[in-house]
Every structure is written in structure tokens, then in C-alpha cells.
């Protein structure tokens, strides 16, 4: 990861009327990373993205793309960005190819070869001359990515890129975005409410709630950031084992199920407790570490608010 950020967001605020929608966001995005925007509906993800691409005015603060202020030096700043804002809406009465021609005329230096290259990249060669109204959602999504990549931007912003795609399509996009970030060195910014997807796709995520950035974290830290982990012991008999745990771990939180016990403990303590259990004649069927999924963690951070 390069040290100079490609995108710098500084104290970004948005007010509509008297209502403050975005309360001052500050974060940086670097070359070669996939950055995820996470938050419940109405948290301000799309508003933030709209300000970043100049579709909405900025009330206060700055968005810098490669050092260019989006509101002061729009043309220079936007020429480094490729984006899909919300759904990839294209001109349905035109063919996919005509759509790309349309956008290629709005930037400098996009050749016919480049269009061909991008079409091949997103795998639309067979359907590119059909009208967009005949496309499936997944094909439209891919055409959307094609138009965003047309002018070889350094920043790719995708709002809900996996929306409406089937699992195979999602996997494809995920794989593809990772490739763009790693091989081409793009900074990719995605927003999604599919938390499991974010976990697989992103390097870092920023959690947004009510227009505030709750935190920016590396995905691996975020999911497994704590020292203590919940470990599940499948044992028999459960009651007897529970007593042993209670005696051994003075601060461990213990919950029991029908045939298992969940214990919050440090990883290093597992071998010792196993010896104790075996000596007491308890049968152990399995021990597994319970990693919190991003979803659980997310609900924890945002106070259990419904994500959707």
C-alpha cells in the first residue's frame, strides 16, 4: 500500500435545509486497496459518494482526488474517477456499445481499441451490440463497470456493486475488483449492505451511521480484533463440564447449550482446560473457535440497528 492517499476526505459535511446529513467525515483512501463503506440505510453512504463525485454540493470540508479539490477543480479531479452511483442506469434504447461510445466522447483519449479492451475485460463481447433493454441486471452491472473503467481512472467508486447479482455474479465481481486493486493499483471504493460480501471483498471498511463515521478499520482487525475469543466445547456431560470451567476460569463468561458450552477465553488457555476436562472423565467431541462475523460485529458497533 502506497503512502500517499489518492482520495482524501477532510471534515466533509452536508446540510440540506437545517438538517445536517453528514457530520464531518475524515478519511483517506490509498492506491491498491478496496475500501468498503458500510452502514444501515439512510446512514449517508450514497450522499457521501455523491459529494465525492461532484453530483452534490459540499456544505463544508473537502474532497481531494489526487490533490485536486472536486468542487474547485472539478474537471481535473473527476477525470481520475470512474463510478457507478446507485444502479447502473444506461440508455436502454441504445446498444451497450453505443452507450460506451457515448461516454467515450465525453473524455479525452479513449480509442476504439480501449473500448474493445474494456468490453473484453468485463466479458460482454457477445452481447455488446444488443440493446441494453435486453440485458440482465448482471450484464448491466458489468456494462456499468465498463463505462467506469473506460478512461482508465485511478479511483473506482461503486455504489452497491453486487446489488441484484446472483452468487456467481457476486463472486465474479468480487474477484474482479480485487484484481483491479492488486494488479492495476486502483483504489476501489464500494458501498454495500451485504456484510458477508464486504468481509470477502474489502481491505478496510468505514462504518457510517447517522452521517457519522464510527470507525475505519482493517477488515481482519475488525473481525478478530480482540484478545479473548469465544470457544465452543462440544462435551458430555455438560453440567459437570460447566462446573470445571467455573472453577478454572474466574472471569470467563460461560453460556451453555444442549450439548455444548461457549466460553470467552484466551486462546492460550485451551490446552490446559482440555487436560482438566479429560482428567475429570468428560468426553470431548469437538473444540472450535467462534470468530465473530462482520455482521455480528457490525450489529454490535451500530447498536443492533437493522441493516438493510
Amino acid at each position: 500500500m502506497s503512502q500517499t492517499p489518492i482520495v482524501q476526505i477532510q471534515n466533509l459535511k452536508k446540510k440540506i435545509g437545517n438538517k445536517t446529513i453528514i457530520h464531518g467525515l475524515t478519511f483517506d483512501i490509498y492506491k491498491g486497496e478496496v475500501f468498503g463503506f458500510l452502514g444501515p440505510n439512510g446512514a449517508g453512504k450514497t450522499t457521501t459518494i455523491r459529494m465525492m463525485v461532484g453530483l452534490m454540493g459540499i456544505t463544508e470540508g473537502k474532497v481531494l482526488i489526487k490533490g485536486n479539490d472536486i468542487s474547485k477543480n472539478f474537471k481535473e479531479a473527476i477525470s481520475h474517477i470512474g463510478a457507478i452511483v446507485e444502479n447502473p442506469e444506461m440508455y436502454k434504447f441504445l446498444s451497450g456499445y453505443k452507450n460506451l461510445i457515448h461516454y467515450s466522447r465525453m473524455v479525452k483519449g479513449v480509442t476504439k481499441e480501449r473500448i474493445k479492451e474494456v468490453v473484453k475485460l468485463v466479458g460482454l463481447e457477445d452481447a455488446i451490440h444488443n440493446k441494453v433493454k435486453t440485458y440482465s441486471l448482471g450484464m448491466r452491472q458489468r456494462l456499468g463497470i465498463a463505462q467506469a473503467l473506460l478512461h482508465s481512472p485511478s479511483v473506482l467508486i461503486l455504489d452497491e456493486p453486487t446489488n441484484g447479482l446472483d452468487p456467481a455474479g457476486i463472486r465474479e465481481i468480487r474477484h474482479y475488483l480485487r484484481k483491479l486493486a492488486q494488479e492495476e493499483g486502483l483504489a476501489v471504493i464500494v458501498s454495500s449492505h451485504l456484510l458477508a460480501e464486504m468481509e470477502l471483498m474489502c481491505d478496510r471498511i468505514g462504518i457510517l451511521q447517522n452521517g457519522q463515521l464510527i470507525g475505519v478499520q482493517n477488515i481482519t482487525e475488525f473481525v478478530s480484533g480482540e484478545e479473548q475469543k469465544t470457544v465452543r466445547f462440544h462435551v458430555e456431560p455438560v453440567e459437570k463440564a460447566q462446573r470445571i470451567f467455573a472453577a478454572k476460569l474466574n472471569d470467563g463468561v460461560i453460556t451453555t447449550g444442549e450439548d455444548y458450552i461457549d466460553v470467552l477465553m484466551e486462546k492460550e488457555a485451551i490446552p490446559d482446560i482440555v487436560i482438566d476436562l479429560v482428567e475429570e472423565g468428560i468426553k470431548i467431541y469437538g473444540i472450535s473457535e467462534m470468530t465473530k462475523t462482520l455482521e455480528e460485529k457490525f450489529l454490535e458497533v451500530t447498536g443492533g440497528k437493522q441493516v438493510g
Binding site: V53, G54, I78, I84, V85, E86, E89, M90, M106
Partner: peptide, 14 residues
């Protein structure tokens, strides 16, 4: 109404 305005205005054109 098509929503295409969002893609139209994020180009280096005033």
C-alpha cells in the same frame, strides 16, 4: 427520470 444523469455528470465536462 432514466437515472442516467448521474453517469452523465461525472465526466470531465462542465
Amino acid at each position: 427520470s432514466w437515472g442516467t444523469i448521474k453517469l452523465l455528470l461525472i465526466r470531465p465536462v462542465s
